[in-house]
Amino acid sequence: MIRIADVHKRFGALAVLRGVDLALAPGRVTAVVGPNASGKSTLIKCILGLAAPDRGAITLPDGRDVREPTARAAIGYMPQAPRFPENLTGHEVLAMLDALRPDVAPDGTLLERFSLAAQLDKPVRTLSGGTRQKLSAVVAFRYRPQLLVLDEPTAGLDPLATTIFKAAVLAARDAGTSVLLTSHVVGELQAMADDVAFLLDGTIHFAGPVARLLDRTGARSLEEALAALMQAPTDRIPDAALHGDAPQALRVMNGGGA
């Protein structure tokens, strides 16, 4: 279990995370959903050790804080907008990352499935957006992480690559990896998410299995349930959010945001 316990994060006057509690179970895909500026990106940055929580902690199953450099050997990260050194080839990028983890034999499965090897002889600057995204996925899965953090992973992937990618996520999950996923594609969440964590104004308002969310909201699909969550929030949601207009509530799945 990866535990996120009472995590607070403030940027200047803005309290972005206000006591996030969440457990990421092994062998489960947890979709973190929430409107723009709900704190998703900041939560991800805290999990990756890129930002330090003001209060609270994020710990691995063995109890290590993710801010310890060695703890990050357990994490695979696929960012929303991957960029690599422009003048290096894809193979050189992989060689560099491999060298940072000489204690792990890299897993080349996804590289093979994407048939990416031939393209990685070229400098990164000549690669298309989709190919960079595939390279980014390969990096995230390559070191057999205990936790996969996938931030809008399929933006820019073609349908075939998306299919391969989803299969890889589910295979990693079945092998016991904890997966944290954000996506604005509801179908993707539907296909992969076991659990949903609904983040709003820096706190988790719902966390649990998809079935329980459907039950609680009386919705027939995840899409409806998410819309219901965002439009007619539970009693824990502060007044300000209740007065949000409907169009905005419908836009909330458009990803991004702080």
Binding site: T109, R113, A171
Partner: peptide
């Protein structure tokens, strides 16, 4: 997809300096 290899807990002892 073939069975993926289970996640490997990092081995801090063999980490490079």
């Amino acid at each position: 997809m073939t069975a993926a290899i289970a996640p490997v807990p990092p081995n801090a002892a063999s980490r490079p300096g």
